[in-house]
């Protein structure tokens, strides 16, 4: 077994299902550089496991993911761009891996954390969960997640969600198409098990070919936009408006 106290992300593989856990519960699984690197390494490992057809993404503790750990890097010039570029690459890797990515979203998925939900092929949450992209409220531009959100919920709804900022309930996220399943929290385990079992029974090649085609339809344009988004977002973080708000938040 892996030593969970020192690993920011843990990977367990059982049969056709790989479970990747964000493991910084004391920081509500905020995406630090170390966590992002660990997630990318594990995604790379799973990508090459031919007998695995499902990647289940979950968070240890009460929250799925509180978003980017900006506090840790704010004072270092260049660090926000590095962090955002890491998230951009992680999302592209999750999207292009042959496995079906399922997000198990409990508690909260905020900012970059909600970005991971938007990249997942399927996502389950509960009606009173908190999801959303409050970036604009902090003077930050959610540029990396925007191309994915436009893809998944459509340009009109994405525009509304990102410009309005704030957070949404799990129920509202379900109505807007941000997640595929919304059930009472005590039923998540059961519904998730029947979902992953169903996926595990499906043809591995059929799933991979379907996901591959959907990826091809998105084309390189999206990947280029996601990478460009990291630069835009870092640029906006460096603006006085964002610096002032972030200083207040972390002050």
């Amino acid at each position: 077994m892996t030593d969970t106290t020192t690993h920011p992300a843990t990977l367990e593989i059982e049969g056709r299902i790989a479970t990747l856990t964000l493991n910084r519960p004391e920081k509500r699984n905020a995406l630090s550089r170390e966590l992002i690197s660990a997630l990318r390494e594990h995604v790379e490992t799973v990508r090459h496991k031919e007998g695995v057809s499902v990647l289940l993404l979950r968070g240890a503790g009460r929250s799925f993911c509180a978003g980017m750990d900006l506090k840790a890097v704010l004072k270092e010039p260049g660090a926000p761009l590095e962090l955002l570029s890491g998230i951009a690459e992680l999302t592209i890797e999750m999207r292009t891996m042959p496995q079906v990515v399922v997000a198990d979203v409990r508690g909260a998925a905020i900012g970059g954390g909600c970005g991971l939900v938007g990249v997942a092929d399927l996502a389950i949450t509960h009606p009173d969960a908190k999801l959303g992209y409050p970036e604009v409220d902090l003077g930050v531009c959610p540029a990396v997640v925007a191309p994915w959100l436009v893809q998944s919920v459509g340009a009109g709804v994405a525009r509304r969600i990102l410009l309005q900022g704030g957070t949404l309930s799990g129920q509202r996220a379900y109505e807007l198409g941000l997640v595929s399943h919304c059930v009472p929290v005590e039923e998540i385990d059961r519904v998730l098990k029947s979902l992953t079992d169903r996926l595990a029974r499906a043809g591995i090649r059929a799933l991979a070919a379907t996901k591959g085609l959907l990826g091809d339809l998105e084309a390189e344009r999206i990947h280029a936009a996601v990478r460009e988004g990291a630069k835009i977002s870092a640029d906006v973080i460096a603006s006085p408006e964002a610096q002032e708000r972030l200083a207040k938040l972390y002050g």
Partner: peptide, 12 residues
């Protein structure tokens, strides 16, 4: 914050 809103709208 107006700058973040303007950049986000332009990016969309």
């Amino acid at each position: 914050p107006p700058h973040a809103i303007a950049r986000t709208k332009a990016w969309l």
